[in-house]
C-alpha cells in the first residue's frame, strides 16, 4: 500500500506544487476581496471556498490517474484492489488536510498582514473551527469516494453532486410537504417538527455538555463514517469492470 501512496506523490508532484501555490493565492484574494468589500470575512462564503479548494485538490490523484487510464496498470500489478482503495483514501485525505493547513496558514498570515482581528478569523482559527472544518471535509470526501469507485471519476463526481443536491433540496421540500400536509392528515406534524428541532438542538449543545468528550464522540462518529465509506468503496471497486 505504501508503494501506491508513494506513486501518487511521484506522479502528481508537479500538480501538487501548482496547488501549493494556487491555494494560498486564491485564499488571499478571497480574504482581501471580502475585507475590502464587506469589511470582514463572510464565514459562509469562506467556508464554501475552503471546501471547494480542499476537495478539488484531493481529487488531483484520481483525476491524473483517470486521465492516464492508470486504473488498468495498477489492477494488473500484483496488488489487491482493496489496497488500491485504501491508498487512494489515504492520499486524498492527506491532501485534504494539507490543503486545509495551507488555507489556515494563509489566514494566519492575513491576520498578521492586515493587523486586524475578525470574529470569523477567530472562529476559523479556533480548535473548534479547525476540527469542525476537517471533520466536515473528511465526511464530504467519504461521501464522494464510494461514488467514484462505483462509477469511475467523471460519473462518480456527478452522481455524488446530484445526491448532495438532492439532500439539500430535500430539506425545503420536506418542510413544504409538512406544511402542506398538516391539516389534511390527522398526524400532528407540528409535534414532529418540534421533535426534529429538539434533536438538532441536543446535537448542537453536545460540545457544551460533554466538553472534551464531544471531540472524542465526533472522532468516533467520523471514523465510523469513513470506515463504512471505505468498505463500500472496496466492495464497489472489487466488482467494477476496468
Amino acid at each position: 500500500m505504501l508503494d501506491l501512496i508513494k506513486k501518487d506523490f511521484i506522479v502528481c508532484w508537479i500538480f501538487l506544487l501548482g496547488i501549493a501555490i494556487l491555494i494560498p493565492f486564491i485564499t488571499t484574494i478571497a480574504i482581501v476581496a471580502m475585507i475590502e468589500d464587506f469589511g470582514g470575512l463572510i464565514i459562509g462564503i469562506f467556508t464554501f471556498i475552503t471546501i471547494a479548494l480542499c476537495i478539488a485538490s484531493s481529487f488531483i490523484f484520481i483525476g491524473v490517474d483517470t486521465a492516464s487510464n492508470a486504473d488498468m496498470i495498477y489492477a494488473s500489478l500484483p496488488v489487491k484492489r482493496s489496497a488500491i482503495v485504501y491508498a487512494r483514501y489515504f492520499s486524498s485525505m492527506l491532501q485534504v488536510i494539507v490543503s486545509f493547513t495551507l488555507i489556515i496558514l494563509t489566514c494566519l498570515s492575513s491576520v498578521y498582514v492586515f493587523n486586524k482581528s475578525d470574529p470569523a478569523f477567530e472562529l476559523l482559527l479556533s480548535l473548534r473551527g479547525i476540527t469542525s472544518m476537517i471533520t466536515f471535509l473528511l465526511l464530504i470526501l467519504s461521501f464522494i469516494l464510494p461514488f467514484v469507485f462505483k462509477f469511475a471519476f467523471g460519473k462518480g463526481i456527478t452522481a455524488a453532486l446530484i445526491t448532495q443536491i438532492c439532500f439539500v433540496i430535500s430539506v425545503p421540500v420536506f418542510k413544504f410537504l409538512m406544511k402542506a400536509l398538516n391539516g389534511i392528515w390527522e398526524f400532528d406534524f407540528a409535534f414532529f417538527t418540534k421533535l426534529l428541532n429538539d434533536i438538532l438542538k441536543w446535537i448542537i449543545s453536545l460540545p457544551r455538555v460533554l466538553g472534551i468528550y464531544a471531540y472524542l464522540l465526533i472522532f468516533i462518529i467520523v471514523s465510523m463514517m469513513i470506515f463504512i465509506s471505505i468498505i463500500l468503496s472496496v466492495r464497489f471497486y472489487n466488482r467494477r469492470d476496468l
Binding site: 508503494d3 506513486k7 511521484i10 506522479v11 492516464s68 496498470i73 494488473s76 500489478l77 500484483p78 496488488v79
Partner: peptide, 29 residues
C-alpha cells in the same frame, strides 16, 4: 500477477513522466 508480464494494446502510462519514473513506480510492486 507477480508471475505475469502484461503488455496492453495501448499501454497507459503517465505521459508527463519519463521511462525512468515509470519504472520507479512499477518496479517496487
Amino acid at each position: 500477477k507477480s508471475r505475469i508480464g502484461f503488455v496492453y494494446d495501448t499501454p497507459n502510462y503517465y505521459e508527463h513522466l519519463n521511462l525512468k519514473q515509470i519504472k520507479n513506480i512499477i518496479a517496487p510492486f
